[in-house]
Computed example of a mutant assay.
Amino acid sequence: MIVFAALSGFLAVALGAFGAHALKQVLSPEMLTVYQTAVEYHLIHSVLLFVVSALMLTHGHLRWLKRSALALAIGILLFSGSLYLLTLSGIKTLGIVTPFGGVSLLLGWLMLAAAGREFSRIQPVEGSK
C-alpha cells in the first residue's frame, strides 16, 4: 500500500502539472475546474493513504486500518480517475462512477476513525484512567 500511495502521489503531481500547462488552453473553464478537483482530491488522499499505510507497518493488526487503506485506494481510483477520464475524453456518462469514489473516500475516513477507536482500546493513552 505504501508503494501504491507513493505512486499515486507522484501521479497526482504529474497530472496536476499536465493540467496546469497542457490543458489550460484545451479544456473549458468548467472542465478545467473538474480536472483540478480530481487533482486536489487525488493528492490529498494519496498523502492520507501514505500515512495510513505507514501506520499499518506498526499496527497492521488493526482491521479498520487495513479497510481504510483499501477504501481510500479504491476511492482515489474511482473518484479522481473518473473525473480525469471525463474531462479528457468528454464522455459525460463517466460521471456516474464519481459518486461511488466519493463514498469510498468517505468510508476510508470513517474507517480510519474506527481504527483510532480500535487503537485506543488496546493502547491506553498516558495519563488516562
Rank of each mutant, 00 (worst) to 15 (best):
L112M: 14
L32V: 00
L15P: 03
S53N: 05
G101L: 03
L32Q: 09
A114D: 09
E126M: 11
I44R: 11
W109M: 14
T98I: 05
L70Q: 13
M1A: 11
G108L: 02
I2V: 14
T93E: 14
L94C: 08
F119T: 02
S8W: 01
P99Q: 07
V26K: 14
I76V: 08
K129A: 13
G90H: 12
F79V: 05
A6Y: 05
A71F: 12
V34S: 07
S82Y: 02
K92H: 10
L105K: 05
A54N: 00
L112S: 06
L57N: 12
A14Q: 04
L43E: 13
F119R: 11
S104T: 05
T93K: 14
F50T: 09
T87V: 12
L86D: 02
G81E: 07
V103P: 06
M31F: 12
V47K: 06
P29S: 11
V51P: 03
S128F: 14
R117S: 00
L77N: 04
A73D: 04
T98K: 09
A17F: 05
H59Q: 13
H21N: 05
L55A: 15
L7S: 09
I91C: 00
A113C: 12
G60Q: 13
Y41I: 13
G108E: 01
R121P: 00
S128N: 13
A14D: 08
M56W: 14
L57C: 09
L62G: 02
L88D: 08
V13C: 02
G19P: 06
V26A: 09
H61W: 11
T37G: 09
V103A: 15
V47T: 12
P124M: 00
L88R: 07
E40M: 14
K66G: 15
H61F: 07
A71E: 04
S53E: 06
V26D: 07
S46L: 05
G81H: 01
V97E: 03
G75K: 02
I76W: 00
G19Y: 01
G102H: 07
L106Y: 10
S104P: 12
I44S: 06
I44K: 13
A6S: 14
L94N: 09
T58M: 11
L27P: 03
A115E: 03
T33G: 10
